[in-house]
């Protein structure tokens, strides 16, 4: 196997697996850890997850391809996910998306050439009271307008 975890991650994974009476049940949390460590769940990561949990790669692929949060290709350092569901759209999500597209020069599904940003649209994030909203990695940002987006994106490391 070519992928290697840090010792710390190994321990985390052992702890996760111990939380379930059946190893396979740890698949989602283990995939989250793998994605955090390697940035994606491509074929190699699938094989790694399969061997950790003693299941087939087919079963891992079934799961990886079902859930939207597993990135089968690497995303940029910052993954911007703009909500395109009802409330956010009512509150101007389309303009927000356009603005980000222009600002970064990419369309949803694309990554900037410096691998800094990936842009996606997503379904409801559960932050409708602050629509329009988006996630940058796992940080929620609401009440978006052009100014706020500039402030958020320009202040990232």
């Amino acid at each position: 196997m070519s992928l290697e975890f840090s010792d710390k991650t190994k321990k985390t994974i052992d702890k996760i697996i111990a939380r379930y009476p059946q190893k396979e049940a740890a698949l989602l949390p283990v995939l989250h850890v793998i994605q955090k460590e390697f940035g994606q769940i491509s074929e190699e990561e699938e094989i790694l997850a399969a061997s950790l949990l003693g299941i087939s790669q087919v079963k891992v692929r079934e799961v990886v391809s079902f859930y939207t949060m597993f990135n089968r290709k690497a995303v940029g350092k910052y993954h911007i996910q703009v909500c395109s569901n009802l409330t956010c759209t009512l509150m101007g999500a389309a303009n927000i998306l356009n603005f980000i597209e222009e600002k970064l020069g990419i369309k949803p599904g694309e990554t900037t050439s410096d691998k800094r940003f990936t842009l996606s649209t997503v379904e409801c994030l559960g932050a409708c009271e602050q629509a329009p909203s988006m996630m940058v990695n796992f940080d929620y940002h609401g009440h978006l307008d052009k100014e706020k987006i500039n402030e958020i994106l320009d202040n990232l490391e």
């Binding site: 989602l28 079902f66 859930y67 939207t68 997503v122 379904e123």
Partner: peptide
């Protein structure tokens, strides 16, 4: 236990499947 992006997992039996490490 964190889900991974699937509305259907809010349906209780899909949630169980997902918790067992399967498709929702």
């Amino acid at each position: 236990h964190r889900g991974a992006g699937a509305y259907i997992c809010g349906e209780e039996t899909a949630l169980l499947e997902s918790l067992e490490g399967k498709r929702g």
